[in-house]
């Protein structure tokens, strides 16, 4: 309890540094059996804000963003995304998923579909965009992630870095208001990490709202508006990167940073 109180005093996770609130989490708790993965999380993200979530493994970072598009169902508290509250109502869940794009650690591209079909499937089947239009948009997105020449290949024929960039294009194809990145570079070979981080940086500069779970501290320092440090299912410390990395307040934050930097 004291942990939580001090965290709130140190930097309030519910105060975005820019934009009107678009993601609001209030008292969110998530359990897996007896294990509490998230404990009473309060957090607000503003439009065009880039929030980077860091923390040791098992701290609840991934669970946090997976609750935002309901890949995990929270047990207590409220989550509101762009004015829609996540409840059992499947219409709300569908609405929120249309407005949020997600990029996974393991890419999760559809191996039986070509790169272009991976990108156009959701716009065509969910938003009912005509094929021609969806494909034109898909090719533009491949331009954006700098692999237009791979449109007709299959995911298995691409390198990890290319696959992850296709996954980013796929997430963008639904024109989401929020992008969620779940350790997007953790499964990549070292030489491919930068190409993916550069793509994400481009998106951050465009002013997209995003939450990025990552272990890449240099990246966090460069693009984050706020850094959120989690441990044991709680938000321990929040702050702009310049303060967070140079002058951490909490003992746990200091210990974590000392380990990885």
């Amino acid at each position: 309890m004291t942990d939580h109180d001090t965290a709130a005093a140190l930097g309030d996770a519910t105060r975005p540094v820019k934009g009107a609130p678009i993601i609001e989490m209030e008292g969110v708790t998530k359990r897996f059996g007896d294990f509490e993965a998230l404990k009473d999380i309060d957090m607000v993200v503003g439009t065009q804000e880039v929030v980077v979530v860091i923390g040791p493994s098992g701290s609840g970072k991934s669970t946090l963003i997976r609750c935002i598009n309901r890949l995990e169902e929270h047990d207590e508290g409220r989550i509101v995304v762009d004015g829609t509250e996540l409840t059992d109502d499947i219409r709300n869940i569908a609405e929120v998923r249309r407005e949020t794009g997600m990029v996974f650690q393991q890419f999760n591209l559809f191996p039986h579909l070509s790169v272009l079909d991976n990108i156009t499937l959701a716009p065509r089947k969910v938003r009912k965009v005509p094929r021609r239009e969806a494909e034109a948009q898909g090719r533009e997105l491949l331009e954006l992630v700098r692999i237009p020449e791979q449109a007709d290949k299959y995911p298995g024929q691409l390198s990890g870095g290319q696959q992850q960039r296709v996954a980013i294009a796929r997430a963008l194809a639904m024109r989401p208001k929020v992008l969620l990145f779940d350790e997007p570079t953790s499964a990549l070979d070292p030489e491919m990490i930068n190409e993916v981080l550069d793509t994400i940086k481009d998106l951050a500069r465009e002013g997209r709202t995003m939450i990025v779970v990552t272990h890449e501290m240099g990246f966090a320092r460069e693009v984050a508006d706020r850094v959120v440090f989690m441990a044991d299912g709680r938000i321990v410390e929040v702050g702009p990167p310049e303060h967070f990395f140079t002058d951490p307040q909490e003992a746990r934050t200091k210990a974590f940073l000392a380990q990885i930097l």
């Binding site: 598009n69 890949l71 249309r98 997600m102 996974f104 393991q106 559809f110 959701a122 997430a171 639904m174």
Partner: peptide, 11 residues
């Protein structure tokens, strides 16, 4: 991850 990715896209 396959069905998760598809659900996350809103299918």
């Amino acid at each position: 991850g396959q069905s998760e990715a598809a659900r996350a896209l809103g299918l």
